[in-house]
Amino acid sequence: MKKIIIITLLGLLSSMTAFALDGNEILKQVDRNLNPESFEMYRKLINIEPDGTKKEFVMFSLKKGKEKIASVFLLPASEKGRSTLRIGENMWLYIPNVGKPLRITSLQSVTGGVFNNSDIMRVDYNSEYNCEKIETIDKGYILYLRAKLKSVAYETLTMFIDSEKLLPYKIEAYAASGMLIKNLYFKNIKDFGNGVIRPEIIETDSPLYKGYKSYIVFANVKKRELASEIFSLNYMHKIDGLR
């Protein structure tokens, strides 16, 4: 009887591990489908207030490997030249007026509004999260992700994945307390060329900002080999020159 219980338990454990591995593999594939490992892109961030007033930001970003991303704001004029850098869990903001990089955190927001730095300086999901559980649904999978880094803005994510395209169509982001912080909806799958096919728009709403909506619109997402020196504090004020 004892043997049967032990064998059953081991069987259960091994099947859970197999699921976790599958989930993480799917997550890695989702990351690669969302963008190449090293690439450049333009993004427009749109914040819409309940009265319809909107603010737009345009930024140019470069990403290398799993954990390095640098961006510079191109619009509006008040933000032009501001740049951000992320290396793993470290994030910096360079403001031309201030003239030197300052350390910032994932929860802060360089744009104000619903987007925080983690949304803007997104690195690969699989470098930040572990898949704890996977569920199969009609449309695909639901991945239950838990943060493996302390610097993340959201403790857990519930990622809804289209199994055909292996791309997310919705992500729910939760705080450590279990409170829902944000919903992200991935829309308009577009062929950006050179094998990059991904959602063009991410729509965001948050119960913390009732009535507010935010959008990220992607353009010119393309592979690019990049020197590591670009991802350093001394280079932050020169990122615009790489366009």
Binding site: I46, D51, Y215, V217
Partner: peptide, 20 residues
């Protein structure tokens, strides 16, 4: 002009407007 009259959302993003 970016007030309630402008509520119709335009998500078109033409990077030419920020061309280098």
């Amino acid at each position: 002009s970016q007030t309630t009259d402008d509520i119709l959302l335009d998500l078109d993003f033409n990077v030419e407007e920020v061309a280098k």
